[in-house]
């Protein structure tokens, strides 16, 4: 009976979260489509034609999975960070805190909302990509699992950011100063093998390298890193962030007096 109640609660949070980003679709779904179109036009068609092949693929083909992943990461993160922080700011997070909803359900609900938005955005960007490149699929299972795990991971990151955030500025600090540099240096626009040896070693510390490469493997069948290592990193980080988020909310950090 109680488990059934938790399932209803989870569905309600998901419904609310989806309703939120669909209500403001012009702010949430359209911008990534426009931004990625510009990336495809500028880097894919205009500059890409002069870059030549990367790892045996045209530059636009090589770049396409990374661009989808870039949109997925940004949207999963920003959806949860802004939604949870707004709920804190307007105090409607109290609606959940007073209800008999376990913390893991609250976390799953918010993260689920971020994952759904990220998946929709990923699909929209894939549609945009069709105008610029013939999409080939090497392994759909790898594509789907990488996309979902990455979305979960960054949605959890956004949630933790929102838990600690005290002002709206605080939810843009991590994306600006940490997430963007890691993403742009995460192999979206280049192959790690193009880097000097030292920087190849340094780039192994960037978790986004593993996600982008695993995702690229799903499309192209080529990757700079081992798939096993990539999934180990993804699952490892996801578990760590999940337990961190649950612990923080359980303790009431930033949400209870």
């Amino acid at each position: 009976m109680i488990q059934a109640n938790y399932w209803v609660a989870l569905k309600s949070i998901l419904y609310k979260e989806c309703n939120r980003f669909l209500r403001i679709w012009v702010q949430t779904l359209v911008p990534p489509a426009i931004t990625m179109t510009l990336y495809f036009v500028v880097f894919g068609s205009l500059i890409g034609s002069r870059v030549g092949e990367v790892n045996g693929f045209s530059y636009v083909e090589f770049m396409m999975p990374g661009l989808i992943m870039l949109a997925v990461i940004n949207n999963a993160y920003s959806n949860v960070s802004s939604s949870f922080f707004s709920a804190k700011f307007q105090r409607n997070v109290e609606e959940l805190l007073v209800a008999p909803v376990p913390t893991y359900v609250i976390v799953a609900g918010y993260v689920g909302g971020g994952v759904i938005r990220a998946t929709i955005v990923g699909f929209i960007v894939s549609l945009v990509a069709l105008f610029f490149v013939d999409i080939q699929i090497h392994n759909f299972g790898v594509i789907l699992s990488t996309l979902l795990l990455t979305a979960v991971l960054f949605a959890l990151g956004g949630l933790i950011n929102a838990v600690y955030a005290k002002t709206f500025d605080d939810i843009s600090i991590i994306p600006t100063f940490i997430l963007s540099p890691l993403t742009y240096l995460g192999g979206v626009f280049f192959s790690v093998s193009m880097l000097p040896d030292f920087w190849q070693g340094v780039s192994q510390l960037n978790p986004i390298i593993y996600m982008v490469n695993a995702f690229r493997f799903g499309f192209l069948g080529a990757s700079d890193v081992s798939l096993t290592l990539a999934f180990s990193v993804l699952i490892g980080f996801t578990l760590v962030l999940f337990f961190t988020a649950v612990t923080l909310i359980n303790k009431g950090i930033g949400i209870r007096s």
Binding site: S12, I13, N19, N92
Partner: peptide, 25 residues
């Protein structure tokens, strides 16, 4: 103090709250 989402409709607010307590939609 008012602690609901100001952008949600009246019915959404009450129906979502019921859902958190396990009441089917």
């Amino acid at each position: 103090e008012f602690n609901f989402n100001q952008f949600e409709t009246v019915q959404q607010i009450v129906v979502n709250q019921a859902g958190y307590y396990g009441v089917e939609r």
